[in-house]
Design a protein around this nucleic acid. Structure first.
Length: 421
RNA sequence: GGAGACGUCGCAUAGUCCGGUCGAGUGCACCACCCUGCUAAGGUGGAGACCCCGUUUAGGGGUCCGAGGGUUCAAAUCCCUCCGUCUCCGCCA
């Protein structure tokens, strides 16, 4: 939910944001009008209610013989109050619907346009070169007996897989390494629920345009989350939290579920795009004044992870039109995938400013003890997809794969993954 | 799954039987001041969230007793539905 005050006082900022996103700018005027009608309806109801309250006191205080007359007098008033209240409720709902359709206002500097209009901020590391024909991650996974696609499909259908042996161990090693990295940075680990209520799902902004990406269990009215961000954002919903001594930082470990509707034919080979994977997600609740600095910190942690694992990558500043509805800015870190000759997204970090917190009712006490929505930020620290870049980058001619040094302690010292059979 | 109890402004509770004096009392915790020489105690006062009007002031108004409906001039209080918590029983990882 955008800030109604910003909408009222600086509509041009919101309009410009809509234009940068290639979204409907007229929605802004519709929202302003809905807000005006809402306040008008509230004022009408409240003055009637004040009258009714005053009258009620008279009735209570009146001697018995006068009560009947006073009560009769109040009947019309009661009907008016009821009607005015219904009108106010309706006007509020209408405003919420219109204003709720406006995505977060982008931060100055975010590139305008759609998916292809991102700006590359930097390229880091050396792309690996091979004096042999490199195998793709699935070929390697099969050689190592680490990935079993066929049986995944047999058991659960397309885009499902088994991680087996060193594959399973490698994923756990990566996740645990990421968790320790977060721990060292002061994050509190959370293993989160992966089924959440509708209000949490919509509060985090995932039930908008991409609702068909999400698994839903109608019998239980629960959604399967595509990221632990959902549970992490809902964690402090409707709370006033204390961020005066620093942000609240969480590292959420969860399985993630995505329907991948509309991605037929994309990335059908291997585990690049799957229905189920593991992810370690960072999440910060922070004073909005410090949000952009926190965003840089999360990005630095992500880059540190890729660097320590010997992966070449680039950082992109996602264009406005490609942002989720809650994000005001998003950086993606994309790793070089040798057999694709392309950079592929390994992490993403979004600054949701106060947009998500306003919808979820997460507040803090600012100056003078006034409550105000906090800012929320999220960012990936590791996912199953990283295995793709790790296997392909560190492969050798014989199909073995060198384990990057930081992961070795998590694999009982294993330095090389060797082909099986 | 069955039975019962309960859900009140940070925490703990009073109030609900019998609707209006509840504009929600009290204790603890919190903040300010006063008093007091010692790991404190006592006194006085203050303090909630959300929304609307008002120049981001002063101030005024409204809403909030788990959620949503209903009855009524008037609901924490009466009625209905839902959600949650606890206890016991049953069943089962």
């Amino acid at each position: 939910m955008i800030d109604p005050q910003l909408l009222r006082e600086n509509p041009d900022i919101v309009r410009r944001s809509q234009q940068a996103r290639r979204a409907d700018a007229q929605l802004v005027d519709a929202a302003i009008e809905a807000d005006r009608q809402r306040r008008e309806a509230i004022a009408a109801f409240e003055s009637l209610r004040a009258e009714q309250n005053a009258h009620g006191k008279q009735v209570a205080a009146a001697p018995k013989e006068q009560k009947a007359a006073l009560v009769a007098q109040a009947q019309q008033l009661a009907a008016d109050v009821k009607a005015a209240q219904a009108a106010a409720t309706e006007a509020e709902a209408r405003f919420a619907e219109v204003a709720g359709g406006i995505p977060n206002v982008i931060i100055d500097g975010v590139p305008e346009g759609g998916e292809d209009d991102f700006v590359t901020l930097r390229e880091v590391g050396t792309k690996p070169t091979f004096d042999f024909e490199p195998r793709d991650h699935l070929a390697l996974g099969e050689l190592l007996d680490a990935i079993d696609m066929e049986r995944g499909v047999k058991v659960s259908g397309s885009r499902f897989y088994f991680l087996k042996g060193v594959g399973a161990r490698l994923e756990l090693a990566l996740m645990t390494y990421a968790l320790d990295t977060a721990l060292d940075a002061g994050f509190t680990p959370l293993i989160t629920p992966t089924l959440v209520k509708p209000e949490v799902m919509s509060g985090t902004g995932f039930l908008g345009a991409h609702a068909d990406e999400i698994y839903y269990l109608p019998n239980d009215e629960l959604y399967l989350t595509g990221t632990s961000e959902v549970a992490l954002a809902g964690y402090h919903a409707d709370e006033i939290i204390d961020v005066s001594s620093g942000p609240l930082r969480y590292a959420g470990w969860s399985t993630c579920y995505r329907r991948e509707a509309g991605s037929y034919g994309k990335d059908t080979r291997g585990i690049i795009r799957v229905h189920q994977f593991q992810k370690l997600e960072m999440f910060s609740y922070i004073d909005p004044a410090e949000a952009e600095a926190e965003h840089e910190r999360l990005l630095a942690m992500q880059e540190g992870m890729l660097q320590s694992l010997g992966l070449a990558y680039r950082v992109i500043d996602t264009a406005a039109g490609d942002l989720g509805s809650s994000a005001a800015r998003k950086f993606d870190v994309e790793a070089w995938v040798p057999t694709q000759g392309a950079y592929r997204e390994l992490t993403s970090t979004s600054n949701c400013t106060t947009f998500q917190a306003r919808r979820l009712g997460v507040r803090f006490r600012g100056e003078g003890g006034k409550t105000a929505p906090v800012a929320t930020l999220n960012g990936t620290l590791a996912t199953t997809r990283w295995l793709v870049a790790l296997l392909e980058t560190h492969q050798r001619a014989d199909g073995s794969v060198v384990v990057p040094a930081p992961l070795r302690p998590y694999l009982r010292g294993l330095e090389v993954l060797e082909p099986v059979g």
